[in-house]
């Protein structure tokens, strides 16, 4: 351990470089009361089909990770399918 850097757990040193977040393929959402489905729209207001190709994997892989077992987990945007739980009480 070098003395000129703040101490941190060994595992954190194995972290990738911090990269800018990938922007979601949608700009806004709306909720359809009848079907209880969320609709996704681009900046121009056109519907984004989130079931298609990279859109589907973007959201299921990189962003939809809020919620530990109790809804308290982090919603960090990381291409990791497990959830972290930094915000438990």
């Amino acid at each position: 351990m070098s003395n000129d850097r703040p101490m941190q757990p060994w595992g954190l040193g194995r972290m990738t470089q911090r990269l800018p977040e990938v922007l979601p393929p949608y700009e806004t959402t709306s909720f359809d009361p009848a079907t209880q489905l969320t609709r996704f729209y681009d900046a121009g207001g056109a519907v984004v089909d989130m079931g298609k190709g990279t859109n589907r994997s973007f959201v299921t892989v990189t962003v939809s990770r809020g919620g530990g077992g109790d809804g308290s987990g982090g919603a960090a945007q990381v291409a990791d399918d497990s959830e972290n739980d930094s915000a438990s009480d």
Binding site: G11, L12, R14, M15, T16, Q17, R18, L19, P20, E21, V22, G74, A75, A76, Q77, V78, A79, D80, S82, E83, N84, D85, S86, A87
Partner: peptide
């Protein structure tokens, strides 16, 4: 191999990171 239990901590400044 090394593997973290729960991944990288949450960033709040528009950046992301991972521990593969």
């Amino acid at each position: 191999i090394y593997k973290s239990f729960r991944g990288a901590p949450r960033a709040t400044d528009g950046h992301v990171a991972a521990i593969w």
